[in-house]
Nucleic acid binder design. Structure first.
Length: 316
DNA sequence: TAAGCGTGGCG
DNA sequence: TCGCCAAGCTT
């Protein structure tokens, strides 16, 4: 775990990652307290219940990519009630997935989830695949989501490295406030080095370390008094020094194409019939940017242009 | 590798 | 108020 501002001299291997651990922060001394804390304090989330199943876990992971739990909850419940199996979603028009996505944001995720459901129906007999490589081949599933579904839905042993876990490791092991902007090879190797050998313990550790980052070791206003590994935390031991170096990449939004795309798609989500061009023109007054945003939505497959100049969510 | 991609709540 | 942040993926 290297501070964001310092270059990594050489790519360390797993042994180096282990050697880099503080003497009092070996995997064994972290697993037990974090898992015990999780057993006592984990949130009761619907996708963690036994009846959620692999499809429920997968749907939740798509929705939780960059969207907070509180906003996912109601949409998740409606989604699973309407499409309880991948094949149920695959039968629908992709535009219905985009509509049901509502205001979760990043609506391309809805399209990709529909595409993943179609691929599961065609290639995997309707069952969410259990192998990491098969999951990774589905649209919208990357390194994190493949590991998360394999671990949470199937109890497998994978390093599940999301933003919460990365922050916990950066602090507890690396002694810095924040992890690097992009996931590094050193982080992956550290995560593998810290993974419990036992499969069941590994999957519990994955969920527990994520939850710790989400509830206690948060980006702002961390609550070290409630942390089960505060005594072993390198960042706390160092006096919790503030992040050094350039600001982390910010997300601009106001005035961008993304904002225009959002407004255009909101109109189409609410409409039951194809929408005339004039209705879309009202959402943004600058015509060049407006046209560019609409073209982008069409190119992404989120919007379908009709021959008569109307637009709708995609039927195919 | 870095930019692009939504939306809303919070400090 | 407004910048930061939220279980990332794709190109």
């Amino acid at each position: 775990m290297t501070a964001p501002t310092k270059p990594t001299p050489t790519a360390p291997d797993a042994a180096d990652a282990r050697d880099g651990l503080a003497a009092d922060a070996s995997g064994e001394t972290l697993h037990t307290p974090v898992i015990a804390w999780f057993d006592a304090h984990a949130r009761d989330l619907p996708w963690r219940r036994p009846d959620a199943g692999p499809w429920g876990v997968m749907v939740s992971e798509f929705m939780l990519q960059q969207t907070p739990v509180s906003r996912v909850l109601p949409v998740y419940e409606q989604w699973l009630a309407r499409w309880p199996r991948p094949a149920d979603l695959a039968k629908e028009a992709p535009g219905e997935a985009v509509r049901a996505w509502g205001r979760l944001g990043y609506p391309r995720r809805a399209l990709r989830l529909h595409g993943a459901a179609t691929a599961i129906t065609e290639r995997h007999g309707g069952d969410v695949p259990a192998h990491h490589s098969q999951l990774l081949a589905l649209p919208g599933i990357g390194e994190y989501t493949a590991a998360a579904v394999a671990s949470f839905a199937y109890g497998q042993r994978h390093a599940v490295l999301d933003t919460n876990v990365r922050r916990v490791f950066a602090r507890a092991v690396g002694g810095v406030q924040y992890p690097p902007n992009a996931t590094t090879a050193a982080e992956r190797k550290l995560a593998r080095a810290l993974l419990p050998d036992d499969e069941r313990t590994a999957s519990r550790w994955a969920a527990a370390s994520m939850e710790l980052g989400a509830l206690v070791c948060t980006a702002r206003n961390e609550d070290c008094a409630k942390c089960p590994i505060a005594a072993q935390c390198a960042w706390r031991a160092a006096g919790k020094p503030a992040h050094e170096g350039p600001a982390r990449r910010g997300q601009t939004y106001a005035g961008t194409d993304r904002q225009v795309r959002g407004k255009l798609l909101a109109v189409l989500r609410e409409a039951v019939a194809p929408v005339p061009q004039a209705a879309l023109d009202r959402v943004w007054d600058e015509p060049v940017q407006r046209a560019r945003a609409l073209d982008g939505l069409v190119a992404d497959g989120l919007v379908e242009p009709l021959a008569d100049g109307h637009y709708r969510l995609p039927l195919t």
